[in-house]
Design a protein around this nucleic acid. Structure first.
Lengths: 221, 221
DNA sequence: TGCCACTTTACGGTTTTCCGTAAAAAACAG
DNA sequence: CTGTTTTTTACGGAAAACCGTAAAGTGGCA
């Protein structure tokens, strides 16, 4: 049975609405935080007090503000939480997840549910909570559909580095020099060109400009 | 005094949380809808029944689904609502607004407030409601900041066209051809080059990629 | 060690972009 | 209408990006 719940969600209204949904399910008042670091602290303290949480409901994306955070976002929070409390149930509630990200969360982090923010998200949230309470996993419908049409080329760290430098105004030669200076393995100009071609092909972009626009929009960089 | 409120917001959780925020302000239970068409219908009926709404709280972006809608989004809804009830107060609650869009809403549609969805959005929502109840307008802080730091060079429609086409994968020659085809005045390749240089200079960008990244981040395009 | 598969790099030729200059066109005043 | 100013376009050389291919390097594996 799920009794003790922690909500990590920086959007105040969303945070409130999750609480309201829980109320309707007659789940006793959950704890809630607006920052990832606070979430982990709560989980740690609860463990030490021998009153650990049953469920963590968390967003993936958190806006940055004046408060410096050690944990950068939902994914890092999930990993950290799993590390200190392996039996914690985790429900991700987010609008931004890419199929590949969701898949990775289910496989690697063994999360228990994923709910897309959307028109009927409160109802979905209830369904997910019921499923999780019954020790079942909850996959969103959208996920099943998107599974089929996945042309998802997952960008690795190297790709992100190149794209970030490029979005930062660096020319390809400068990127090559930067990679050499930082001892990152493929650093030749040709490798950068080749990689960019691969990415553009995968993401169906014809120019660098379009690629950068796409990545910024998708919050890849 | 604000008594009768209509909420148009397709995200169920957000819709709920607005209701909760209104509860805390001791405002009697508002009406709420998930579709723009429904919103306009409600406003029309209330007018005919001589019990018109005092305030419309609406999102800008609505997800499309199986239900075909005449009104495409928040902006269209606002225009339509203004048309049939000029004295209706309007509060926009959205995460997606570009500065130019917000400015246009305040100037052309004469909206009464704009609140960004974000970390402290519930508190901002309360502030905005208080301001509007006092017949004052509520501008978001982010907007004021962005107003200040906006570089002397204001991008015009021509600039936006070029940047949008470029972010769409078009080459400069293709952009030139496009402009010619659509009878947009400066269409020469040189003019495009020159304009891009001016923009890059004004926004302190060294490459097209950096420029596009900046514009997408700043929601200019 | 030597062979093989694979990755990375180097190097030309082509296309695109960049940048300066000058000609052409348009806008404007007298 | 003429002369001036401003805007737009055209052009050519330099730099950067693009693209294919070949050489050099890397890591298994017998």
């Amino acid at each position: 049975m799920i009794q003790k719940i922690l909500i990590a969600e920086d959007y105040e209204t969303v945070n409130l609405s999750i609480q309201k949904t829980l109320e309707e399910l007659h789940i006793s008042s959950p704890d809630y935080v607006y920052y990832c670091d606070d979430a982990l602290l709560r989980i740690e303290k609860a463990l030490q007090a021998n009153a650990s949480y049953d469920l963590l409901i968390t967003d993936l994306h958190f806006e940055e503000d004046h408060r410096q955070q050690k944990i950068s976002g939902g994914e890092a929070l999930i990993a950290a939480a799993r590390n200190i409390q392996p039996d914690l149930k985790i429900l991700v509630f987010s609008a931004t997840g890419k199929p590949a990200t969701i898949e990775a969360l289910f496989q690697k982090e063994d999360i228990d549910g994923y709910v897309y923010k959307g028109r009927n998200d409160a109802r979905e949230l209830k369904l997910a909570l019921e499923q999780i309470a019954a020790n079942r996993r909850y996959f969103p419908q959208q996920f099943v559909q998107q599974q089929k049409q996945k042309n998802t080329y997952e960008l690795d760290e190297f790709d992100i580095t190149i794209l970030s430098l490029m979005a930062d105004g660096k020319r390809q030669q400068e990127i090559s020099a930067y990679l050499k200076k930082n001892n990152i393995k493929p650093s030749g100009l040709s490798s950068i060109e080749k990689r960019l071609n691969t990415i553009k092909d995968a993401l169906d972009c014809s120019t660098n400009e379009q690629l950068i626009a796409h990545c910024v929009k998708m919050r890849i960089i």
